[in-house]
Structures are given as structure tokens and as C-alpha cells.
Design a protein around this nucleic acid. Structure first.
Length: 271
DNA sequence: AAATGAACCTGTTTGC
DNA sequence: TGCAAACAGGTTCATT
């Protein structure tokens, strides 16, 4: 489910517990995820050097250069536990690490997927080769976003959710960013003034940073790596609030469908 | 090229 | 109350 903040919070939670530990063993469920389970023999007994993130993918970087990429799909989440803890509901992968630590991957909808890449190869895979800049890095600049928007006549929300433009912005944070910037989600990207794109750029970064800061907001499926709920008191301004009054102006938040996804916005604040 | 719809899954919420 | 439809954070593929 996770959008960038939830994946980043997962990374920050797992990294200090796993870095330096060796992957000793693993178990896969009999049910497949989105793609077949990879062969992991190349990293058996190898220590985890770093846990990184690119877009909504977690990247387990091992000492021998091999990289395990992991996408959480719509409903994936990790639990940390001990070696012989009983299986959790919808547990599909278990990784056992040196020191008796066990990482369980649970995913009711099974849209998640993992893959193992030899040294240097992950960036060339189609999943990664076309990805745009990270929204919180400097390559994602105001000028860059203005440039990409000027070239697109499609709705701005669609452009924000296009991973070739910028990664990590999913349905929730696209809606929230557009609300903060006062931009109607269906407005043609190329018909938004440069000043307003600049405001949107700031809104995207602020919304994502705040969500990371509160621990990754999420609707219902995301769980913290220690098993406690990741559903924070973080309140969305518009997402999921159709029919409720806008906190800013009191008009009723509206829901429309774009590209088959629900879009929430305030018809008075967003133009 | 770009816009739509369907597909992959299960669980929860909504509406009759 | 029960049941069925709608809906859910993502990505990819096929069809207009």
C-alpha cells in the first residue's frame, strides 16, 4: 500500500536491526506473490551491508554486491520477530538472520514481489531503468517539474503519479499535495502557471516529509515493523473525506474517479 | 502517443 | 440481518 513515506519508514525501522547480520535461511509460502519467488542461494550466509530505498522499492544490498529488491504492492508489510515465532496471518516470506532475528513479510492481497539481482544489475531492470527522480532529492527541482508539466496535457494528478516524472507519489499524497497547492486534480498539467507548479513542488515535498516524520501515515494495512499499528493520528485534508467539510473553507470534499482511482478534492479551494 | 480498462488478490465497507 | 457490490495504498499489460 505503501507510498513512499511508508516504505521509507519501513526502511528506517528495519535497517538498524538488520545491517551487518547474515541471511541464514528463508521460507516461502505455497501461495505465489505477483512474481515467482527468486532463488536466494547467492546470498545465503552473506551479511546485509545496507538497506536502501528507490521509489517504493526496498533494496537489500548484500556484502557480496547482490541486491534483493522488494516491492510491497498494495497491502504488504514487515514484522520483526524471533526465529521460532508462529506464522502470522498472510505471512508469505520469512527471512532468518544471524542473531536469531526473523523478518516476516505479510501481504493479504499478494501484489508485492521480490527479486534478486547480481552485482550492478538492478538499475538496468525495467522496474528501475525508467524511474524519475526521488521527490526529496535535488534533482527534483521546481524547474524540472515545470518542464515536465509543460509537456503534458493530461490531468496534473495523473502526471504526479507517473513514476517517469517523479517516483513515490501515490494516490493519497497526490491528492493531499494538490489540495495544499490549491490545484484541481483534473486540470491539464500544461495549463498550470509556473508559480503554481512551484507551489505544488513545495507541497509534494512538505507532505511527504511530514508523513515520514509522523511515521508513515496509512489507512489500514500498514503495520510497523515491530507489529504495532502504523495507522497514525495523521489526518488527511481531503483523502477519504468525500462529503465531509473542507477544513479550510467548509465546502464539501468531493470524490471523482481518474484513471480508475478515487480522487478527493475541495471544489472551492482547488482550481 | 495517450487515454482507458482489466488484471493480479483478499479484506472491509457500503448499500439495498 | 444478510448478501452483493463497491472499494482499497500499486504496477503492468492489452485495447481503443
Amino acid at each position: 500500500m505503501p507510498e513512499l513515506p511508508e516504505v521509507e519508514v519501513t526502511r528506517r525501522g528495519l535497517a538498524p536491526r538488520l545491517q551487518g547480520r547474515r541471511l541464514e535461511d528463508w521460507r516461502f509460502s505455497t501461495l505465489h506473490l505477483r512474481h515467482p519467488y527468486p532463488e536466494l542461494d547467492a546470498i545465503r550466509g552473506v551479511a546485509l551491508q545496507r538497506l536502501e530505498r528507490r521509489a517504493k522499492y526496498l533494496l537489500f544490498m548484500f556484502d557480496n554486491g547482490w541486491v534483493l529488491s522488494w516491492h510491497l504492492g498494495m497491502s504488504g508489510h514487515f514484522h520483526l520477530g524471533k526465529l521460532n515465532d508462529p506464522s502470522l496471518r498472510h505471512e508469505h516470506v520469512r527471512l532468518n538472520w544471524s542473531g536469531g532475528i526473523s523478518v516476516r513479510y505479510c501481504d493479504p492481497r499478494r501484489f508485492g514481489y521480490l527479486a534478486l539481482f547480481p552485482p550492478g544489475e538492478w538499475r538496468r531492470h525495467p522496474w528501475f531503468a525508467q524511474l524519475g527522480p526521488e521527490p526529496l532529492e535535488t534533482r527534483f527541482s521546481v524547474a524540472y517539474l515545470q518542464d515536465r508539466c509543460a509537456a503534458r496535457k493530461s490531468a496534473i494528478k495523473q502526471v504526479l503519479m507517473d513514476a517517469r516524472v517523479v517516483v513515490g507519489v501515490g494516490n493519497i499524497y497526490a491528492c493531499e499535495s494538490l489540495f495544499r497547492a490549491g490545484i484541481h486534480p483534473a486540470r491539464a498539467a500544461r495549463r498550470i502557471a509556473g508559480r503554481r507548479i512551484a507551489r505544488l513542488h513545495g507541497a509534494i515535498r512538505d507532505v511527504l516529509r511530514e508523513a515520514i516524520a509522523v511515521g508513515g501515515s496509512s489507512i489500514r494495512d500498514f503495520l510497523h515493523i515491530d507489529g504495532s499499528s502504523g495507522y497514525f493520528a495523521h489526518r488527511f485534508a481531503v483523502y477519504g473525506r468525500a462529503g465531509a467539510p473542507c477544513h479550510r473553507c467548509g465546502h464539501l470534499v468531493r470524490r471523482i474517479v481518474q484513471q480508475g482511482r478515487g480522487t478527493f478534492y475541495c471544489p472551492a479551494c482547488q482550481r
